[in-house]
Write a protein that binds this DNA or RNA. Structure first.
Lengths: 198, 198
DNA sequence: GTCTATACACCGATAGAC
DNA sequence: GTCTATCGGTGTATAGAC
């Protein structure tokens, strides 16, 4: 039986290049728009030709897929930071959960489009890339259940409400705060609706 | 001075062909997806070659633009039908306004993407095509003001709430009713929030 | 194993003949 | 007004150089 080396430099190198590709893709997506990303641009930025990318990703959509997973995984890291600081008041905690997600979405248009919209024709996230998104949802659902918001319908309304405010903000007042200012009031409305204490 | 003819058969023919092109575009958009529309397909469907379309529309986005205007103009016709039947109760009227828009959006995915989402990279509706969309908004704003919901913030929340439910329905349960079932309850929540009578 | 050159099929758009 | 031909662009497949 072959002895396994403690490190596999081959795989490490491969992973490093994958990361380099994704970093270049994020930069270009923010510069020129998510949909205007081209493999030739990504490759040129890291000193390669377009076909070389196929040694690291099987398709352009696979790059989008990895970026999708990255974005949601990064958000889990944000949650991990925020969760210990959640207020004890259910109502205030709900506001902070909503605010955290809202701000993360609004802070990066390209990332928001990839995470929450279907702006790339034909792109459908793979189950693996979607897993962290599911975890985010589940953790939100658990928090609300802890506050007594146990119904799945209430949680569906919660997500739709936040998503609607985010989309309106990004579409109609990008960079502004016309809908951002409404978030806390909307959460109070929701809290009253589901009977959270004042 | 030249005498104007009562009819201009040239322009009438041109208009008829434009309509033919748009009809073919709608059919193909519903069949193969809005973003997967190609000029070659549209042209073939009406017995033309792709470059001939440029005699009627200056670009592919101009076709999307005309479709955008059509969709919103058609919705105005829907409003005109519904408005005389609005309940006297403000709360019930708000529900019906929301339900009408929700159902119109959910009934046709391609149309909804064009009207309410930015799913076509680089497409921005022209002011002329956007005009009927503005009229729809203004008429909604007028209705709500008539019910005592005069604040622009309240109306912004109203639109974001409906839009959020529509997007959630289309994205996560297309063809189903998981979020559609929540619409009336959401409107009661909103009505309580803005103080509409029971 | 990595990367490249080449090529293919398709796209929106343009030029010019008829 | 409609065509053919073509341009520059895209994502992607493949063969082969190193």
């Amino acid at each position: 039986m072959l002895e396994m080396p403690y490190r596999n430099r081959q795989i490490e190198r491969q992973q490093a290049t994958r990361t380099e590709i994704l970093d270049a893709a994020w930069t270009l997506a923010r510069e020129k728009g998510l949909a205007d990303l081209t493999l030739r641009d990504v490759a040129t930025r890291i000193g390669m030709r377009a076909p070389s990318l196929y040694s690291y990703f099987p398709s352009k959509n696979a790059i989008y897929d990895a970026m999708f997973g990255q974005a949601w995984t990064d958000y889990i890291a944000v949650i991990d930071l925020v969760e210990p600081t959640l207020p004890e008041s259910p109502r205030e905690a709900v506001k902070q959960i909503a605010r955290t997600f809202f701000d993360y979405a609004v802070a990066d248009l390209a990332r928001h489009q990839l995470m929450n919209q279907r702006t790339i024709p034909g792109f459908v996230p793979s189950p693996e890339a979607y897993a962290p998104a599911v975890e985010v949802l589940e953790r939100g659902r658990t928090h609300l259940a802890r506050f007594g918001v146990a119904g799945s319908e209430e949680f569906d309304l919660f997500t739709a409400l936040i998503g609607g405010l985010i989309d309106a903000q990004q579409a109609n007042d990008p960079g502004g705060d016309r809908w951002s200012r409404l978030l806390d009031g909307a959460m109070d409305m929701f809290a009253n609706h589901v009977g959270l204490p004042e």
